[in-house]
Design a protein around this nucleic acid. Structure first.
Lengths: 124, 124
DNA sequence: TGACATGTCTTACAATTGTACGATATTGTA
DNA sequence: TACAATATCGTACAATTGTAAGACATGTCA
């Protein structure tokens, strides 16, 4: 896939897009339910975000009954690659090492995660 | 340090802030010079970004001759922690593992970087 | 078949962001 | 001391973002 000219997703959009990935396909309702309780945000707002994501080319939707069911039209991996790349550029001038280091030292990762990671690294 | 109420930095601001860190202290000029050649952006724009960063509380400045010399007023680590946390929340629902995995598999990291990382993981 | 519940669409709007011009101030130097 | 070079400041402005209310449509069930 080429995915030319995809405008970047805003933070709020990214947050919503992730929830659609998570559920493969989702209505506005379903996305709303998936939001963490702490995240107070109106139904209409989620709707707007989904619409904008579709306009930007990240989602499509089918009509089912009266609801719209949204689903990704761009590979998740592509979006991640781009987002991470962008983030890395801004915060670390593109160098992934400080980010790795930060994650490794931060304590956010459990011991077993580090084991997993070790395997990942050791593999070809 | 507490750093209460620090408004988040925008992407462009983050990019500039990083360059100030890199140089410890820097004038508008110096930041401009530090920008990658590909990044065309007017002196005045950099100035605005620095001004906004100061207003938000991330920078302070001394006056030296006629120039303002900007320097960080918030620990780099704090900013990184916050930015990474934010990014992780949006793109991965807060789970650092997929990001780690992405970085490890992505090929952006060289073999020797992975060695470093291994040491990092193995250490207490 | 009519009302209710549930959806979507249109529209809005303030805040933030990215970008930069032009006016004005400062300073070292001829 | 007047000029050229260099700075900053105030201001601007369009685009994007985050947020949502209200109008209108539609499927469902009594």
């Amino acid at each position: 896939m080429k995915y030319r000219n995809l405008p970047a997703t805003s933070p709020a959009e990214t947050e919503i897009l992730r929830l659609v990935w998570q559920q493969k396909r989702a209505t506005v309702q379903e996305v709303c339910h998936q939001l963490p309780a702490a995240r107070k945000i109106a139904y209409a707002t989620v709707q707007t975000l989904l619409r904008r994501l579709e306009k930007k080319g990240y989602l499509k939707h089918d009509v089912e009954g009266k609801a719209h069911v949204f689903y990704p039209s761009v590979e998740q991996d592509h979006v991640i690659r781009r987002s991470v790349g962008d983030f890395l550029d801004r915060l670390f001038g593109g160098d992934p090492r400080p980010l790795m280091q930060f994650l490794a030292e931060d304590g956010r990762l459990e011991a077993k995660d580090l084991d997993e990671l070790r395997k990942l690294i050791d593999n070809p």
